[in-house]
Lab assay of single mutants.
Amino acid sequence: QEELVKAFKALLKEEKFSSQGEIVAALQEQGFDNINQSKVSRMLTKFGAVRTRNAKMEMVYCLPAELGV
């Protein structure tokens, strides 16, 4: 569980995922086979993730800066 949270936060820091499906796929690539869209959705809510525009003006998920991840 701890490893999943770390990987999840690291992915969001990249600010390149525009959908929950993309986050699920990226986590599965890292070996988290039991991850699915509903789990990702709950984690996004739990950590207060928001959708914002990145440098390329794409809408992407990211974590609020005050979490200091």
Rank of each mutant, 00 (worst) to 15 (best):
residue 13 K to N: 08
residue 3 E to L: 13
residue 59 M to A: 05
residue 46 K to Y: 15
residue 45 T to C: 06
residue 38 S to K: 13
residue 47 F to C: 03
residue 20 Q to G: 07
residue 35 I to T: 04
residue 5 V to C: 15
residue 18 S to K: 15
residue 50 V to T: 09
residue 56 K to W: 07
residue 47 F to Q: 04
residue 4 L to P: 01
residue 36 N to E: 06
residue 8 F to Y: 01
residue 46 K to I: 13
residue 15 E to T: 05
residue 33 D to A: 14
residue 30 Q to I: 10
residue 49 A to C: 04
residue 18 S to T: 13
residue 57 M to F: 10
residue 56 K to S: 10
residue 48 G to P: 01
residue 26 A to L: 05
residue 58 E to M: 07
residue 51 R to G: 03
residue 54 N to H: 03
residue 15 E to A: 14
residue 14 E to T: 13
residue 28 Q to M: 12
residue 43 M to S: 00
residue 6 K to G: 06
residue 46 K to T: 10
residue 44 L to M: 06
residue 31 G to W: 02
residue 44 L to D: 01
residue 24 V to Q: 05
residue 4 L to V: 07
residue 28 Q to L: 12
residue 11 L to K: 01
residue 56 K to V: 07
residue 69 V to Y: 04
residue 53 R to I: 13
residue 5 V to H: 13
residue 12 L to M: 06
residue 7 A to F: 06
residue 53 R to A: 10
residue 46 K to M: 14
residue 50 V to K: 11
residue 61 Y to L: 04
residue 48 G to L: 04
residue 1 Q to M: 12
residue 24 V to A: 08
residue 37 Q to Y: 09
residue 24 V to T: 07
residue 51 R to T: 06
residue 45 T to H: 14
residue 66 E to H: 10
residue 68 G to V: 10
residue 5 V to D: 13
residue 3 E to P: 10
residue 28 Q to A: 09
residue 59 M to E: 08
residue 18 S to P: 04
residue 26 A to G: 03
residue 51 R to S: 04
residue 11 L to Q: 01
residue 38 S to A: 14
residue 16 K to P: 05
residue 42 R to D: 14
residue 34 N to Y: 12
residue 32 F to I: 03
residue 57 M to T: 04
residue 8 F to T: 03
residue 64 P to S: 05
residue 29 E to R: 13
residue 4 L to S: 01
residue 25 A to D: 08
residue 14 E to S: 13
residue 56 K to R: 10
residue 7 A to W: 05
residue 17 F to I: 04
residue 22 E to A: 13
residue 28 Q to T: 09
residue 56 K to N: 13
residue 4 L to I: 07
residue 17 F to T: 04
residue 7 A to C: 15
residue 2 E to H: 12
residue 22 E to H: 07
residue 59 M to Q: 06
residue 1 Q to C: 15
residue 18 S to R: 15
residue 25 A to N: 09
residue 11 L to A: 05
residue 63 L to F: 06
residue 44 L to C: 02
residue 36 N to Q: 05
residue 48 G to C: 05
residue 44 L to A: 02
residue 60 V to D: 01
residue 20 Q to N: 08
residue 14 E to M: 15
residue 42 R to W: 14
residue 53 R to D: 03
residue 50 V to I: 13
residue 24 V to E: 05
residue 66 E to S: 09
residue 61 Y to C: 01
residue 2 E to Y: 12
residue 39 K to V: 15
residue 26 A to E: 07
residue 6 K to T: 11
residue 52 T to K: 15
residue 64 P to Q: 05
residue 64 P to K: 05
residue 58 E to G: 05
residue 8 F to M: 07
residue 35 I to H: 01
residue 9 K to R: 11
residue 24 V to M: 08
residue 5 V to G: 07
residue 34 N to Q: 10
residue 10 A to S: 11
residue 33 D to S: 14
residue 61 Y to V: 02
residue 26 A to W: 08
residue 65 A to R: 09
residue 19 S to V: 05
residue 19 S to H: 09
residue 59 M to C: 03
residue 34 N to D: 13
residue 15 E to Y: 06
residue 37 Q to E: 14
residue 2 E to L: 12
residue 54 N to A: 03
residue 57 M to K: 09
residue 35 I to C: 02
residue 31 G to Y: 02
residue 67 L to A: 14
residue 60 V to M: 03
residue 11 L to Y: 03
residue 6 K to C: 15
residue 63 L to N: 02
residue 32 F to A: 01
residue 13 K to M: 14
residue 59 M to W: 15
residue 60 V to G: 02
residue 43 M to H: 01
residue 42 R to H: 13
residue 57 M to A: 10
residue 8 F to Q: 00
residue 16 K to R: 14
residue 34 N to C: 10
residue 65 A to C: 04
residue 45 T to L: 13
residue 27 L to W: 01
residue 37 Q to P: 10
residue 18 S to V: 10
residue 49 A to G: 04
residue 64 P to R: 06
residue 6 K to M: 12
residue 2 E to C: 15
residue 67 L to N: 13
residue 40 V to S: 00
residue 9 K to C: 12
residue 35 I to F: 03
residue 23 I to Q: 00
residue 9 K to P: 00
residue 48 G to I: 02
residue 67 L to T: 15
residue 39 K to G: 09
residue 52 T to P: 02
residue 55 A to Q: 09
residue 17 F to D: 01
residue 29 E to G: 10
residue 11 L to M: 09
residue 16 K to E: 05
residue 53 R to C: 07
residue 13 K to D: 06
residue 56 K to E: 10
residue 58 E to R: 07
residue 27 L to C: 02
residue 12 L to H: 00
residue 54 N to R: 03
residue 30 Q to S: 07
residue 31 G to F: 03
residue 45 T to N: 11
residue 33 D to H: 13
residue 45 T to W: 09
residue 59 M to P: 04
residue 33 D to I: 14
residue 40 V to E: 00
residue 50 V to N: 05
residue 13 K to V: 09
residue 69 V to R: 07
residue 14 E to N: 06
residue 39 K to S: 12
residue 63 L to A: 03
residue 64 P to C: 12
residue 49 A to M: 03
residue 61 Y to I: 04
residue 52 T to D: 05
residue 30 Q to K: 10
residue 17 F to Y: 15
residue 18 S to E: 06
residue 63 L to Q: 03
residue 18 S to H: 11
residue 35 I to R: 00
residue 39 K to P: 01
residue 8 F to C: 15
residue 68 G to H: 09
residue 33 D to L: 14
residue 7 A to H: 06
residue 61 Y to G: 01
residue 55 A to C: 04
residue 28 Q to G: 05
residue 26 A to Q: 07
residue 54 N to T: 05
residue 35 I to V: 12
residue 8 F to G: 00
residue 20 Q to R: 14
residue 29 E to P: 01
residue 27 L to T: 00
residue 15 E to V: 06
residue 50 V to Q: 09
residue 17 F to W: 08
residue 10 A to I: 08
residue 20 Q to A: 14
residue 48 G to E: 05
residue 21 G to H: 12
residue 17 F to L: 06
residue 34 N to H: 12
residue 67 L to H: 12
residue 36 N to L: 04
residue 66 E to P: 08
residue 32 F to S: 01
residue 69 V to E: 15
residue 23 I to W: 01
residue 26 A to M: 06
residue 23 I to C: 02
residue 19 S to N: 09
residue 11 L to W: 03
residue 48 G to M: 05
residue 35 I to K: 00
residue 10 A to N: 10
residue 35 I to L: 07
residue 27 L to M: 06
residue 38 S to E: 14
residue 33 D to F: 13
residue 42 R to C: 09
residue 35 I to S: 02
residue 47 F to W: 06
residue 28 Q to I: 13
residue 45 T to R: 15
residue 40 V to H: 00
residue 39 K to C: 08
residue 39 K to E: 14
residue 55 A to G: 09
residue 19 S to E: 08
residue 62 C to L: 07
residue 49 A to T: 03
residue 51 R to N: 03
residue 57 M to W: 08
residue 25 A to I: 12
residue 8 F to R: 00
residue 18 S to Q: 14
residue 51 R to I: 12
residue 8 F to L: 08
residue 11 L to I: 08
residue 61 Y to P: 02
residue 27 L to K: 01
residue 2 E to V: 11
residue 22 E to R: 06
residue 54 N to P: 02
residue 44 L to R: 01
residue 58 E to D: 07
residue 9 K to V: 15
residue 2 E to F: 12
residue 60 V to S: 02
residue 65 A to E: 14
residue 32 F to Q: 01
residue 63 L to S: 03
residue 65 A to W: 10
residue 44 L to Y: 01
residue 51 R to V: 09
residue 34 N to T: 11
residue 47 F to K: 01
residue 9 K to S: 05
residue 21 G to Y: 12
residue 67 L to Y: 05
residue 8 F to W: 01
residue 32 F to H: 04
residue 68 G to T: 08
residue 69 V to D: 15
residue 50 V to F: 10
residue 20 Q to D: 07
residue 19 S to K: 08
residue 63 L to M: 07
residue 13 K to Q: 11
residue 19 S to Y: 09
residue 65 A to M: 11
residue 69 V to A: 13
residue 17 F to R: 03
residue 31 G to C: 03
residue 5 V to N: 12
residue 37 Q to G: 09
residue 23 I to M: 07
residue 38 S to V: 12
residue 43 M to N: 00
residue 24 V to G: 03
residue 65 A to S: 14
residue 52 T to V: 15
residue 21 G to A: 14
residue 5 V to P: 04
residue 11 L to F: 05
residue 59 M to S: 05
residue 25 A to L: 12
residue 19 S to D: 08
residue 31 G to V: 01
residue 18 S to M: 09
residue 5 V to K: 08
residue 51 R to F: 14
residue 67 L to D: 15
